[in-house]
Write a protein that binds this DNA or RNA. Sequence first.
DNA 1: TCAATAAAGGATAAAAACATCTTTTATTGT
DNA 2: ACAATAAAAGATGTTTTTATCCTTTATTGA
Lengths: 151, 151
Amino acid sequence: MFSKTCEYGIRAVIYISAKGSQESKIGIPDIGKNIEAPVQFTAKILQTLVHNDIVSSQKGVNGGFYLNKQQKQKQLIEVVRAIDGDKMFSGCGLGLKSCSEKEPCPLHDKFKAIRSSLKKMMEQTTIDEMSKTLKIGRVLLRIEQFVKHEE
Amino acid sequence: MFSKTCEYGIRAVIYISAKGSQESKIGIPDIGKNIEAPVQFTAKILQTLVHNDIVSSQKGVNGGFYLNKQQKQKQLIEVVRAIDGDKMFSGCGLGLKSCSEKEPCPLHDKFKAIRSSLKKMMEQTTIDEMSKTLKIGRVLLRIEQFVKHEE
DNA sequence: TCAATAAAGGATAAAAACATCTTTTATTGT
DNA sequence: ACAATAAAAGATGTTTTTATCCTTTATTGA
Ligand code: FES
Ligand code: FES
């Protein structure tokens, strides 16, 4: 469905949103470990997300990643668009160069319905919403249990 | 959504079903040209589909590919399974090693609904059905118009 | 002020996907 | 029989995706 890069990106964003804040930023090793993704590769993906104003970052001592209020309210589709582009939400299911009503592929009518539900779903889901289910421990971002913060 | 290999595979199968028959088999150059796919690569994909009893083939003079009656009735999901496997229909949307109700990812509830519609759609759609819309010229498998057979 | 820290950036490497080329095998019309 | 044909099979090449390594830049607490 999404590229591996995009999957890591979404997981990272949800984790950062759940665990980080402007006061307590999250470092790449922490992120990589908790979303079970290659650390350096995750760093690259986060660069892209910072460029696209989906994640905030700060260099230096006590630096790291976090999401500001506006960023937490972003839709998941924006994360996908920043990494994989729009292909999944507008491209042809059989790989034709373009998807159109005028020159549709055999699967067009049935496929566009699915594609449209997927798009709607990714638009209706915010990062914040996902991070909340993670916080209360209902869901996981890796096989082993999410490491609960001691407080 | 599907791999390029799978897209070519589905297009090829629909084309062969529409244009070929046991009496008049279709050759790889014809297929490659009409579905706008690399010829030799398409040959490889068809090998896989023959092994999986989705397409029939015959070597030698007047040989080529065709679909028998049972094969025409197969569901599109079988083509996808033969090439891409089952990942798209059972894997986690965020790339976790497994998708389960017991240890779901944050997107699980929403994602499984989409995935399930996609699966149902690919199960309810037969190769024959797709090839019929191609035959009557309502749809295309490539940018340029499908070459109508002279009869 | 400066050493420690952590992200940013650039270069490189490994793996997978996509694609092509060449040889072999089976089939058939003559 | 056999030459022509077309898929099967195996080897190889290219491109894209995924992943790692190393250097640079910005920040900050002591
Ligand atoms: S043309 Fe193929 S999905 Fe629209
Ligand atoms: S666990 Fe992620 S979709 Fe089911």
